[in-house]
Simulated scan of single mutants.
Amino acid sequence: MNTLESNHDRDDRAAGVLLGAACGDALGVPYEFAARLSEEEVPAMVGGGLGPYAPGEYSDDTQMAVCIAESLRDHDDPRSGPALEQTARAFLTWRRDGATDIGAQTARVLGDTERALADDGAGETGAAEAMTRLSARMFGAGERSAGNGSLMRTAPLALAHLDDRHQLAETVRVYSLLTHGDPLAAQACVLWCEAIRQAVVDGSDEGPRSGLDLLESHDRDTWAGHLAEAEDSPPRAFAPNGFVVRALQAAWSAIAHTPVEAGDRNRYAAPVWAAVRAGDDTDTVAAIAGALVGARWGRSAVPEEYLAAVHGWPGYQADGLAKLAGEIVRRHGG
């Protein structure tokens, strides 16, 4: 393969991250917290769900991912104060103007942040600083803080660190902590984003095991066990899946139990259908799985009917999401 072909393939896989997540999200929307589909039923972008959504419309999973992606497009250093502040402010704007659905934990943190900023008459408190502090306070108080809401949105970060896995891991932790103070959430995001990064770079199918060494040594065996459970059990075994560990397990199980080859017509769709069939939080599990499957196989593997239909806040369609992915990669030297 020559350099031109190699670059084209990587660009295709980079676009597949955002498109794969958004299409998975839109496929899962109609079935969220509804009766689980049978193994014979094929998910479709028919809309409805908790929104209710239009056919092909993605939900909070992709809406929040777009907030992060636009900040990555606009800033050289994802962990800089301005980049984090733009992301946090975008989350708050989304909550007020665009949220068609929002998880309880995320809603609590964003609502508390709005009130903290309103109480700061001098305007000296940054949104990102307040958000992270309030998220940590929830965790410190023993409240549930390991939902799947950061895992569902952090895939774009992989595109900003294609050549540095250690920087990616550090960035992912910072962005997870904006709303999820439990280290488990950050660990899940590190594993999944590293799997995405590696898939974009070289088409790897190693998955989240590739990131185990990025975790603290005392966490690696625990997560290796979680991944082994996912590889041994079908996706439906991990419902309910609002807990971040079970959401990751459901998504990885769907991929691991749906082997596909490069020539398979449904190499993107089949694993994502399996994620939807896991049941419970279907849009989130399918968005998580879709980001990794899209990273592996690229935009070119996503069915044209999905690309024609997918859309959502604040006005993106397939071409816009692909362009956004490309802008992130170019800005960050990937």
Rank of each mutant, 00 (worst) to 15 (best):
C193E: 05
I196W: 01
R197M: 05
R197I: 01
R197V: 03
R197C: 05
A199V: 15
A199E: 10
A199L: 14
V201C: 03
D202L: 10
S204N: 08
S204Q: 08
D205T: 15
E206M: 04
P208Y: 00
S210K: 11
S210C: 14
G211S: 10
G211E: 01
G211C: 09
D213K: 14
L214C: 04
L214D: 04
L214P: 00
L215R: 11
E216N: 08
E216P: 14
H218C: 10
D219T: 09
D219A: 12
D219Y: 04
T222F: 14
A224Y: 03
A228E: 15
E229H: 10
E229K: 05
E231G: 14
D232R: 08
D232L: 06
D232Q: 11
A237N: 06
A237R: 13
F238I: 14
F238Y: 05
A239F: 01
N241L: 05
G242W: 01
G242H: 02
F243T: 02
V244M: 03
V244E: 00
V245G: 04
V245T: 13
Q249A: 12
Q249R: 15
A250H: 07
A250W: 07
A251P: 12
W252N: 00
W252R: 00
S253R: 06
S253T: 11
A254G: 10
A254K: 01
A254M: 08
A254H: 03
I255Q: 03
A256L: 04
A256M: 04
H257W: 03
T258F: 07
T258C: 14
T258R: 02
P259T: 12
V260L: 09
V260K: 11
V260H: 12
V260Q: 14
A262N: 04
D264P: 15
R265V: 06
R265H: 13
W273F: 13
W273Y: 13
A274V: 07
A274C: 09
A275S: 00
A275F: 00
V276E: 04
R277W: 15
R277C: 03
